[in-house]
């Protein structure tokens, strides 16, 4: 090998090493930052509703070898519930819509129009989340709070979790709706590509035996799409779990309470990290910042798990 070739190869190899290294350093830094909080909180962190900075004017006390303010405790069960519940509501709403739209785009739209509609869907997938949040905050919440939730809650009054009180508009269902709107284009765009990758010969074989279009979709295309569909949905779940701004602006930012029904205020791990940063920085023992790092670590591990599953299930080249 020429020296110049060897030098080039070493250089690009080092660049490639940045990818695993940055993930590793990311994990190590979060683990390092979260370590005092992990020692102080123990397993209660995941199973109690107690995020409390303690008496900020008291003298620090030592608990489990860690300096904290008196009365402080950091536990985030309510955030885990809020994150999972809002993401699951989003998926329940987004998957049927996304699948319907993907099938429609791939199978029923005339070829000339298809590429434009597909482009529109892909562009919609790129609308910044802060714009979704702004719209949700200014337009959607007043509408839902005054004209939708009161009727919905009255109509469903016997059903657990769906009945009154209808709340203020800021809450679990609103977060789920806006997250769903962010997920629909993602699901539709990725799934449409998977449908179009179905060999044309299979469609033609279906047509040749006299199947209707719907029968071809239902009996030939959809069975082949089971794994991609699960993969795309899991990818959308990953996006919903980590979504920060839109949820921060519309969820009501509940503290230490579990949602009583789907209209109750919630908070999610990602949005709570932003909403608590200011007050955490005031903690003289820094334990609140370590606690935020522990939330970040938990969120990262959750999202790594979800996304790893999604990538394994999905053929490469599909994900956006």
């Amino acid at each position: 090998m020429r020296p110049s070739d060897a030098l080039f190869r070493v250089t690009v190899t080092l660049f490639a090493a940045v990818i695993p290294l940055s993930l590793l350093v990311l994990l190590l830094f979060l683990l390092h930052d979260a370590w005092p909080a992990i020692r102080f909180n123990g397993v209660d962190f995941l199973f109690k509703n107690a995020w409390n900075l303690g008496n900020q004017y008291g003298n620090p006390v030592t608990v489990h070898g860690q300096q904290v303010m008196p009365g402080a405790s950091f536990a985030i069960l309510f955030l885990i519930v809020g994150t999972l519940a809002s993401s699951l509501i989003a998926l329940l709403l987004a998957v049927p819509l996304g699948v319907g739209a993907a099938i429609f785009l791939a199978e029923a739209v005339p070829a000339g129009l298809r590429s434009y509609l597909a482009l529109l869907v892909e562009l919609l997938a790129s609308v910044p989340s802060v714009v979704f949040g702004l719209w949700g905050y200014v337009v959607l919440i007043p509408l839902l709070a005054h004209h939708v939730y009161p009727h919905l809650a009255r109509w469903l009054s016997g059903v657990p979790f769906l009945g009154p009180p209808p709340g203020s508009g800021y809450g679990l269902l609103t977060a789920g709706i806006v997250l769903a709107l962010m997920c629909v284009p993602l699901i539709a765009a990725n799934l449409r590509e998977a449908i179009e990758a179905t060999p044309q010969a299979l469609r033609e074989a279906g047509l040749a035996v006299g199947a209707t279009r719907f029968e071809i979709v239902r009996k030939i295309i959809l069975p082949r799409l089971r794994l991609p569909l699960i993969g795309v949905s899991t990818l959308a779940l990953g996006r919903a779990l980590g979504e920060t701004m839109a949820v921060l602006m519309i969820s009501g930012n509940a503290l230490n309470i579990l949602p009583g029904n789907i209209y109750s205020p919630i908070s999610t791990m990602a949005s709570f990290m932003v909403s608590q940063l200011d007050s955490a920085l005031q903690d003289p023992t820094n334990m609140a910042v370590y606690g935020i790092a522990e939330i970040g670590l938990a969120l990262l591990l959750l999202s790594l798990l979800v996304n790893a599953v999604a990538r394994v299930l999905m053929p490469r080249g599909l994900s956006a």
Binding site: L30, G238, A293, G296, N307, A310, R311
Partner: peptide, 17 residues
């Protein structure tokens, strides 16, 4: 695979890092 994982890491966690 790791690159895909980094691609879908929550952006807030990158900010925290």
């Amino acid at each position: 695979f790791l690159n895909d994982i980094l691609l879908s890491a929550p952006s807030i966690v990158l900010g925290l890092f």
